[in-house]
Amino acid sequence: MDFRQLRTFSCVAELGSLSKAADKLRIAQPALSRQIKLLEHELRTELFTRSGRGMVLTEAGRVLLARTAGIVRQIDQIRDDIQSAAGAPSGRVVLGLVPTVSCVLSGRLARRTVETYPGISLCIVESYSGHLIEWLHRGEMDLAIIYGPSADLHLNIQSLGRDPIVAVGPRGSGLARKKQVGMDWLLRQKLVLPSHSHGLRALIERAAAKRKLNLDLQLEADSFRVLTSLVEAGLGYTLLPPSSVRSEIRERRLETATISGQAPMRELLIASPIDHPDSTATSVITGLLRSETAACRDERLWDIKLA
């Protein structure tokens, strides 16, 4: 196996198409196909199932991608860092954001990157913390903002700040009028939450167990937009940072109330893989994340308490 073959394999796996990979790598499609066939011949197994709809990884292909994606990313970053040393920062950065942060930061961060660092190619991936942590460990992602706690994550961690959590309900639920509700009351309502693998669900379940309450949980949603739409439809309450539903509150589609007593807060972390150093481009994006987060706080778009 050589690096050129592995990079071609990784690109085809990512895009699911030889033609798209050829366009991205600027290599003729027959040459790419030949590299894949040589790699399959060396490994004595098929890495893709080929069909009219594209290229789909076989089980062997998935194993190879899991083992080599991080290596390919690191070698690409070495090239980018050497080029950046002689000029402006350049290279590709894959950034993961939890949905409640993405809806506040994505547009601002993308604009700052394009305006200030045109040599950096930024790929923003939105998902819940559980998925982002897995992609960081596999080396498929350079950087992510996830929710804590940081114990046992086996990642490089920097604290970004703490995000308050409020009760969120549909229009007419009375939350806006009450302004504040107790956690005991909220946990007795019908709730809409992510599935067990996600941090928000664990936070709520710990609060319920502490009070010896059983959650009334008929609906789960592992999509942030689906979750808020289910609440908006009157199918239950949820708990979210107020910044993530600012537009829905302004349009009177949702209502919120603070939680009395020791209101829950979530720690936000900047995480990166532990087994390779940040590239120049990744460090630049980390700095932009911090400055844009501070700007959102100063503009009162985000109630985050910075670290």
Rank of each mutant, 00 (worst) to 15 (best):
D152N: 15
Q180D: 08
M141R: 05
I145P: 01
L153S: 05
K179M: 13
A151H: 14
G169R: 00
Y147N: 09
P170L: 07
V181K: 01
R171K: 14
M183C: 06
L186A: 12
Q180F: 09
P170E: 13
E134Q: 15
W135N: 12
A176S: 15
G172Y: 09
L187W: 07
S173Y: 03
I146V: 15
M183H: 03
L175V: 07
S150M: 09
G148W: 06
A144I: 04
L153I: 06
L186N: 01
A176L: 11
I146C: 09
A176C: 11
A144L: 06
Y147S: 13
L136I: 07
V181N: 00
A167F: 04
S150H: 10
K178S: 14
L136H: 01
Y147A: 11
W185S: 06
N156G: 10
L186H: 02
S159D: 14
M141F: 07
R171M: 12
I165P: 01
W185E: 11
S173E: 03
L160W: 05
R162L: 07
I157W: 06
H137P: 01
L155G: 06
L143S: 03
R162P: 00
M183E: 00
E134R: 15
H137C: 06
I165C: 06
D152L: 13
D184E: 15
L143I: 05
G174Y: 04
K178E: 14
V168S: 02
K179G: 12
